[in-house]
Amino acid sequence: MAKEAADLTTIDLFNDEKRPGRPKTNPHPRSVQIKINKRNQVKRDKTKGLKRVEFKIHTSLFEALDAKAKDEGVSRSELIEALLVKALADEEL
């Protein structure tokens, strides 16, 4: 009996063939993976002594901060932190 790729009656002949695509490496669904990853990120940040701060700013200010961060080769978060530290240091003088 010949093995045909389109033959569905002899599907057991194809069990050992690898399927194309990326293999599943995590038993959890994507929504659970995201929650686990976020929890781990919060734990890492906490051990580094970091706190989350969230605020809203105008689009023009956001774009200016983004451009300045790219020019200086730092992340937007690092730039905002540096600006806040400098503002607080100037205030103490």
Rank of each mutant, 00 (worst) to 15 (best):
M1T: 10
A2I: 13
E4L: 07
A5E: 08
A5T: 12
A5W: 07
A5V: 13
D7H: 04
L8M: 09
T9P: 01
T10E: 13
T10S: 14
I11R: 15
D12W: 07
D12N: 13
D12Q: 10
D12A: 08
L13W: 02
F14Y: 12
N15A: 12
N15S: 10
D16Q: 09
D16L: 07
D16N: 11
D16V: 07
P20V: 04
P20D: 15
R22M: 05
R22V: 04
R22L: 10
R22G: 00
P23Y: 02
K24M: 09
K24I: 13
N26V: 14
N26A: 10
P27Q: 06
P27L: 08
H28K: 10
P29L: 02
P29Y: 02
P29C: 05
R30V: 03
R30G: 00
S31C: 05
V32C: 04
V32G: 02
V32Y: 05
Q33T: 07
I34D: 02
I34L: 10
K35H: 12
I36H: 07
I36P: 00
I36T: 07
I36V: 15
I36W: 03
K38W: 02
K38N: 10
K38S: 11
K38E: 12
K38Y: 02
N40F: 01
N40T: 04
N40Q: 15
Q41A: 12
V42E: 08
V42H: 07
K43L: 09
R44D: 11
D45I: 01
D45C: 06
D45G: 06
K46R: 12
K46D: 04
T47C: 03
T47E: 15
K48A: 06
K48Y: 01
K48S: 02
L50H: 12
L50Y: 13
K51W: 03
R52G: 01
V53G: 01
F55R: 08
F55K: 05
F55I: 03
F55L: 13
K56L: 05
I57A: 07
H58F: 09
T59G: 06
T59I: 14
F62T: 04
F62I: 03
E63K: 09
A64G: 06
L65C: 06
L65A: 03
K68E: 15
K68Y: 06
A69E: 02
K70V: 03
D71R: 13
V74S: 00
V74I: 12
V74L: 04
V74E: 01
V74N: 00
R76Y: 02
R76Q: 09
R76M: 14
R76T: 04
S77Q: 12
S77V: 10
E78W: 10
L79Y: 02
I80R: 00
I80H: 00
I80M: 08
I80A: 08
E81P: 00
E81I: 06
E81S: 07
A82T: 11
L83R: 10
L84T: 14
V85C: 03
K86H: 05
K86N: 08
K86V: 04
K86A: 13
A89K: 13
D90F: 03
E91F: 13
E92D: 15
E92T: 14
